[in-house]
Design a binder for these strands. Structure first.
Lengths: 161, 161
DNA sequence: ATAAGATAGTTTCAATTGAAACCAATTGCA
DNA sequence: TGCAATTGGTTTCAATTGAAACTATCTTAT
């Protein structure tokens, strides 16, 4: 339908890869612009980085988990989680105590203040998602969800391999 | 089909957003893991960062363009392009002269050495893409391409708005 | 019981990145 | 013409990130 790349390409060029058509590139650009827009919003309105927001989001779903599990569920590394937590705790949005059965672990959760922020940001995020999806038909949306599931699954297997 | 999130969620929780199901998050994780794997390869084998590889890739398709156009076509900002170019030129993979009609602009292109690298890396990249797509059926692939086109287009309009 | 891993999480230091300021050349326009 | 605004590109400085080392605790195997 769209052939927006060929306009300027030299005839008989040595090109063997069209960046604009390359899946990892497209995913990356798409994902970055999508994240960027939303991140700016969190940042300006709530002083939340993406890492902090993700942390809050999983704590909203899984109360009482340890930092390690936050890392797993947000796909961030433990250093990023540690830093996000440090700021969230400093801001009084997350509370931490150490687990009784294992003093290395922490038991994390949103504070009342944290829940308040969560209750404001989550709808914004969902709103944003809706705006993105608004450009797709119902059928396209279903396929997208399905395809993401499959790729996701494939990646998990790749990692486990 | 897959309901992998509910295992631990507290009953009657206040959660209103499931990070694992959230489109921008899924895109981001997917894209990052996809890029990461490939980036490690470029880095180890050729000492190329993603920014440098992208720059080489567009120069492979559009010989003689200026840095500004590289930025446009790679979706990187001009600072990133400037730095990538500095390294590529230092490594002798890209050649730069200043445009005659406008002395601010440069006229960029791959050197022979650059083309050699390109001719090695591009097939690797395509190979990698193939491996990703191998997890999808033909129909799924067609939908994915189509959906990415639509989202891409939507984003362009968003920016232009 | 105890030493050798392994795990949770933090800190440190260097490398990367981003934002703003900057320089030089070009364009627009009074 | 000439001066303000714009554009192409680089530099600078601070903030962010990543990798490796580190502390503390726990587990395992002898």
């Amino acid at each position: 339908m769209k052939k927006n790349a060929a306009d300027k390409e030299a005839v008989g060029s040595n090109a063997i890869l069209e960046l604009e058509q390359f899946l990892p590139y497209r995913l990356s650009v798409l994902s970055n612009t999508a994240s960027r827009a939303i991140a700016d919003l969190y940042e300006r309105r709530y002083g939340l980085s993406i890492a902090e927001w993700r942390t809050m989001a999983v704590l909203g779903s899984y109360d009482g988990i340890a930092a390690r599990e936050v890392a797993e569920r947000t796909a961030m590394d433990k250093v990023a989680v540690s830093r996000a937590l440090a700021r969230l705790i400093a801001d009084g949005r997350v509370r931490r105590r150490t687990a009784e059965h294992d003093k290395r672990q922490s038991v994390l959760g949103l504070t009342a203040k944290g829940w308040k922020v969560y209750a404001e940001v989550a709808p914004l995020a969902l709103e944003h998602e809706k705006r993105l999806l608004a450009h797709l038909t119902v059928e396209e949306r279903r396929w997208l969800a399905h395809i993401l599931d499959r790729l996701w699954q494939a990646e998990l297997e790749e990692i486990a391999k």
